[in-house]
Structure formats: structure tokens, C-alpha cells
Design a protein around this nucleic acid. Sequence first.
DNA 1: TCTCGTTCCGATACAGTGTATTGAGCGATA
DNA 2: TATCGCTCAATACACTGTATCGGAACGAGA
Lengths: 231, 231
Amino acid sequence: MSNEVVWDRPEPPIKPSPTPLSRDLIVNAAIRLADEGGLDEVSLRKVAAALNAGPMRLYGYIETKDELLDLMVDEVYGEITPPPPSADWRAGLQHVAHGIRDAAKRHEWFIDLLSPRPHQGPNSLAHIESTLATVRFEDIDQVLSAVGAVMAYVYGAVRSEITELRAERSTGMTEEQWQRASGPYMERMLATGKFPMLGRVMHESSDRDPAQVFDEGLDYVLDGIAARHGI
Amino acid sequence: MSNEVVWDRPEPPIKPSPTPLSRDLIVNAAIRLADEGGLDEVSLRKVAAALNAGPMRLYGYIETKDELLDLMVDEVYGEITPPPPSADWRAGLQHVAHGIRDAAKRHEWFIDLLSPRPHQGPNSLAHIESTLATVRFEDIDQVLSAVGAVMAYVYGAVRSEITELRAERSTGMTEEQWQRASGPYMERMLATGKFPMLGRVMHESSDRDPAQVFDEGLDYVLDGIAARHGI
DNA sequence: TCTCGTTCCGATACAGTGTATTGAGCGATA
DNA sequence: TATCGCTCAATACACTGTATCGGAACGAGA
């Protein structure tokens, strides 16, 4: 009888389910890791492990880690809905601004990746296109100038919001906590009397809704644009 | 004779001139490295090597690498001259904006380090203080709002300027070069006809002086502030 | 059915990073 | 002179991105 069971036959290497991979799977895995644990959690080894694959496997779909980061950015741009064609330039730019801010809140790492290189992915280009298209000034230079200024403000504002949010989270949580953590140092600084305005800000200013602050700053920019280029 | 020359005495480990170190020396060395070769060139090993020291030596003066980066940022803030007390709020904020832009041009890595954490070093605090002090609105919330918006714009604008500058440098140099490098891809994209506005921008827009563009955007913001808070 | 060629996957390797640990040397004090 | 304490550097560890390469898997041809 040749078909006897051989109990101690070495298991075939167990094929750990060689999941078929794809750029999208890789990018989404990376995004999930980044959402949960921050950008530090995105290493090729960890991304690969999340997909039951060895690190080198990724290089079949991706040239370099930077490319993966670019793809992540482009994916997020794809999540941002373009302004409706019916919107006038002001509403359109507000829509775009909120889209970016919301995306950055969903993916806190997003704003960190906007800096390095310009984004040339399809979604990024579509985003820029729709942003430009929502401003129907006749002079293209005016369009560029307006969009550029709004985008600059948005990036900066989102950046500072995320930074503040991280600082809060890292020192514990509430204002109370912060007072206790980095408080002593600041108290000493303020006590020197060399920073009266900072003192006023910390004691007298009302802490307002961040969304409102964001919109107020955005209104400054939009008002300025409207004033310069007749309505 | 006991004081004979012993030729083959093993050299004392040569004490490679154990230069006395200091935070300032370390920070300045790091800044020089970053200025020359970018932030990647700032590793504890390389900074230490630049000072004829072993890597671990630095930990006598610095708690962690992040602290070194914070110190670098604060040092650059120290280079920025505060606005003269005589300046009105508009001139004052313009002064600050230009100060940051100029510093970021001198130290291209500066803008990359502004994001991570809030800056609490003495120079950073002094910078914020003088910025706030130049805006003499009666309502502290209005001061905060105005300064916040201007700073957001400045950060965003500088960021995009630096990014663009790096892109140019990495692909070779001129518009010509760029056309040849990343051009084919863009050409294909534009040829799809899905990005008419991008096409117009690339072909019709006049490339203006970056400084002028920066100031124009800044004027938008300042105009908007002036309009909302009576002049 | 057996062998060959190709194609893909993963193990291994390398140079680099930040930092913890450890030990050696030296100057000051008892 | 003996010992303590401090300073500095060597070593080590875990981790990164990526090049190289051996071997397994698989389809084609004999």
C-alpha cells in the first residue's frame, strides 16, 4: 500500500497565503498604518508585514519608499471632492479649503507629506485643476495669484492646527494638563516680564472654536482678493 | 640615563584634541551641515565628526536629536530682527513676514522643522512676542486672529516657494530642463484635455518675481484684516 | 514524465540611523 | 598613595531603506 499516511512528513512550507498584491493594496495598508500610529509606523517592513509579505515583495510594485509616500498623498487628494461647478469663486475656494482641512484631520500625516516634493499624481492634478477652474477671473495671472494665496494660507493654517493638536496630545490632554507639564517653564518665562503680549494671550484670550478661527483667517484672504480684483 | 628617548613607545592614543564642546558649537556645526547638504546631512555621527568628537559625546550637551533640531530652529529665529517699535501693524507684520522668508532662504531646512512641534525656545518666544506687540489692536482676540492668519500665509507661501525651488534644482535647472525631464509625463497629461486650466497656467501665465508674488499674497491678507478691523 | 528556462519571492547582507550600556582613563580628594 | 567620581569613547542593539542572489514554482518542450 503506497498511499499510507506519513505522519511526520515535513509540512510544505505552508505558503502563508501569498496574497496577490497591488499598488492599491500596498498604499491602503500604508495609509491605515499611518492613520493609526503616525508616519513612523510606515516602514517597508511593517507595511509588508501587514500584507503577509516580505519587505522585498513591495519592490515589485513600488520603486522606492518615497514613491509610496507620493502615492499615499495622491490617494488622499482623491478623497477630496471638487467644488460644484455652480459655485462662484469664493464659495469654490472655501469648499476646497474645507476639503483639505477635513482630509488633514482624517489623516494627520497628510500635511507632513505635502512639503517635500510637488505632487504630480493624477488625483493631485485633478485637484489643482478643479481648484483653478472654480476661479473664473479673466486674467490667468490673477487666478494663479488668488489660488496661490488661498492655498498658502490653508497649508499654513492646517499645519499649525495639527501641530497644536499633537502638542496637546503629547503632553497629556487638556489645558489643565498642559499647564502642569510645560507650564513651569512658561510660567518662569512669563514671570521675567519680557513677554507681556504672550502673557495677555495666555490669560486674556478666549479659546475659540478652531474651525471658526480657520474660517476667519480664510475670510481675510478672500476679502483681500475680492478687494483687489473688483469683487 | 633614564631619560633616554624610547623611539618605539606606543603613541599615547593621540588625544585628537578633545576640543571643549558646547551647545552653541554643536548647534552651529549642525546648522552649517544642514545649510550645505540639507537636513539629511545632520546625523549625530556627522555632527560629532565635524567637531572631532565621537557621537556619544554630544549627549552630554543634548538630550536627544529632536532637541538639537529644536535648538537649530531657535537659533534661526534669533537671526530674525524684530520690527522697529515705530512700525504700525501693517509695516510690522510685513517686516516679520520678510524676516521669515529671508531666513528660510538662507536656511532651506528651516521651514521643514517648523512643523513638528511648537517652538518654545527663548528666541522663538521673543519672536512671537515682538510679532504680537507690533499689532496694537485693543482686542487681544483680534490681534491673535490677525497674527495667526498672517503667519499661516507666510508659512504656506514660504513652504511652496522652497518646494518649488527644490524641484527645480533636482530636475536639473531651468524651465527648459524641466520641460525635458518631467515634461513628457505632463505633456501626456495635458494632452488628455482633462486639465485645461493647468494647460493655460503652463502656457499663458507669465512667470513673475517670486518676491512680488509673495508680497501680493501678503497684501491680500493684510487688506482683509484692515477691512474687518477698521483700518 | 522528465527536464529546462524563466520568473518571481524571500532570505540574507550592507550601510546607515538614534541611542543604551559599559568600561577605561584621569583629576581631585581623603 | 588609594579611592572616588566624572568624562569620554567603544561597543552593541534595534531599526531603517535597499542590493544581491539562491532557490522554489511553474509552464513549455521532448
